[in-house]
Write a protein that binds this DNA or RNA. Sequence first.
DNA 1: AATGAATGAGTATTCATTCAT
DNA 2: GATGAATGAATACTCATTCAT
Lengths: 215, 215, 215, 215
Amino acid sequence: MSTSPRQRRKEARPQELLAAALTLFVEKGFAATRTEEVAALAGVSKGTLYLYYPSKDELFKAVVRENLSSRIAEAAVLAAQHQGSVADLLCHVMGEWWRQVGLGTAGGISKIMMAEARNFPELARFYVDEVVQPTHQLLGSLIERGIQSGEFRPVPVADTVHVLVGPMLHMILYQHSLGACKLHGPTIDPPAVLAVQMDLMLRGLLSRNSKARDQ
Amino acid sequence: MSTSPRQRRKEARPQELLAAALTLFVEKGFAATRTEEVAALAGVSKGTLYLYYPSKDELFKAVVRENLSSRIAEAAVLAAQHQGSVADLLCHVMGEWWRQVGLGTAGGISKIMMAEARNFPELARFYVDEVVQPTHQLLGSLIERGIQSGEFRPVPVADTVHVLVGPMLHMILYQHSLGACKLHGPTIDPPAVLAVQMDLMLRGLLSRNSKARDQ
Amino acid sequence: MSTSPRQRRKEARPQELLAAALTLFVEKGFAATRTEEVAALAGVSKGTLYLYYPSKDELFKAVVRENLSSRIAEAAVLAAQHQGSVADLLCHVMGEWWRQVGLGTAGGISKIMMAEARNFPELARFYVDEVVQPTHQLLGSLIERGIQSGEFRPVPVADTVHVLVGPMLHMILYQHSLGACKLHGPTIDPPAVLAVQMDLMLRGLLSRNSKARDQ
Amino acid sequence: MSTSPRQRRKEARPQELLAAALTLFVEKGFAATRTEEVAALAGVSKGTLYLYYPSKDELFKAVVRENLSSRIAEAAVLAAQHQGSVADLLCHVMGEWWRQVGLGTAGGISKIMMAEARNFPELARFYVDEVVQPTHQLLGSLIERGIQSGEFRPVPVADTVHVLVGPMLHMILYQHSLGACKLHGPTIDPPAVLAVQMDLMLRGLLSRNSKARDQ
DNA sequence: AATGAATGAGTATTCATTCAT
DNA sequence: GATGAATGAATACTCATTCAT
């Protein structure tokens, strides 16, 4: 009645292409993914991809914006509105991040950047500005908030962010690399690791007089 | 006894080639490194490289053996001989690892594997068997030892190893990827991060009745 | 009688498309001009171009007919009607040619043919039949007329046409190729060159007993 | 006895490649010639071409240097050494040019430049500097010399060079474009045209008191 | 042992043309 | 009539590996 099937198709294309690109980029890396494969997975021809994204680089950037930038912004809003203990907020944010990014394909983007940053400097710059920087800003501000409120011991904020973020990123990377290879290496149970980490971390972070967490 | 300079040269070749390969693999990744570049950096011709290593794959494996397998074995020996608190041993092992692997180029190998495991399954298998598995074995056994001795709380061993290893690997990866790009992203001070981590971790690990670390 | 603006628009389309095509063909050559660009310059969409001209080839032919074939026919009429010295007529025809073709964009068509004749044999055939042949016919007949009337020395007619036509074509080509590149090459002052040429040529052509031109 | 066949081959390659490139560039133009075709015509594989010339652009430049730059330099030497009438020298230089460049494939290079200068600005700049400029310098100096010596009438030098050069270039272009298409267009007999031109030109150039040429 | 010339498979991007709307 | 989304053939350049010297 209203939009023709052709029209509907056209509007869905960008999403379909981004989904295909995300899948393949994460699976094979940026350089090793052929644009034609992306197009094929999205069910269109090579030329059509270029109708929507002018180059492989821009396609990648669009994937990052679609999958990461937006989530980070949401988390920042959430954090700003939160009332209650910072420890809870921190657990919540980390947990959400894991559920939304770590569990899905999107987490694999960090693998790509780790892998290919030095070979594609412009993509690296883009990723740092768009993802790394905002994430650290957000987590740093949370820890700061905990220290201000007396809930956390005074710790070096930036370094603590790295300790906080490290295991999660490492798990994500592992899942998308060696973990995806069906080998006999150590298996990871991410929720369990996350629980252990938050437990250890909070034991270490909480100040003496804040309510003890596990007694 | 009197090896000619020519002879000495010949015997040094493998080492020179491995050093060149390590440098370039870490800088550009496995796929993006050209064998001719490796040869050139080692001061020989393309053909000569193939005299010593039959393929790019085998060259990579040799680099791993040379730089990682051996260090892990040393650490295992050290651990076996250690007398005293497991906490100290853990700090020592982690510190040595950082000094020997994290600080130098060798750490970058983990970046390569994260990056390209799925594109080169055989290399992935090799790396897991040769590096990942033994490392987890070693660290797991240390934590176990701490629990057995009553020094540590009873924690899930495997998961804790991941939490322990995560930040270090993440730092190493970051240094060799985005960190190498001279961007304005968050800077990392690895010794500081390591200190923070060990502090937080041990606060979280130590059982109540073990001697408190920082009072 | 009262054509609607829409109607007028529709009738103007072919002209607008031909003008756009001429401009771009001359600027970039036949092969390097994209049909979409032509359409865009004419203010219509890609598909519309194909409504009026079934292929790029036919579009080119239409451009030639519009810009060259018609002028040549006009010149032939003029020549047939001329009374007076053939030298004057020759100067007039060459001058008009320069004004109408050499000065404007249309001259660039000859560049295209020189450039791409061998890659597009059918276009070449068309151009020879439609443009080259008639031009030589016309100029040859003028020289013949001069010889018949005793005004010119007996010279080999066909060869002389080439000498006559050469510098003009060369200038036109130069203007539309290297001359358009803003380099430091020799500059050309076409009217001056044309004057020099006609002077030299006529000195060489005129028979002894014809009135000397510049004494 | 000395150089191995392989060695001999290597040294001959650049020449073989340049010859193949000249042939194909002239036949099809720069853009329309595929590098693989050049390699095939030279009897080597695609990759080998790139062993000797780093890009299509550089291959083209090498072709120009090999075929034109060197000839121009030779002509300049000849002109500097010449004793006797400038008219004779001019005829000689033009004749040699025709024999060496016009007759062979090398003349077709000018067609390429006319055709593609605007699409490949860097090549255009190179060609002007390397070929056009020096040629005009040389011919201009000859005419100047004739005027100085009283042999020629005082004429505008630069414009006269264009008139002198025009028909030859035009013939060359024609031979390599429409003339190569086996059509029924006007045929050109270059030596005849050249003779006519030099006759007409010199009749026009020679001053009154210089010895008449053809009485 | 060492060289380096040669190979050829592999890939991002462009553009004339079609056709459903 | 007019549109513009979709197609897929076509092409420069790279690099692991071989092998004659």
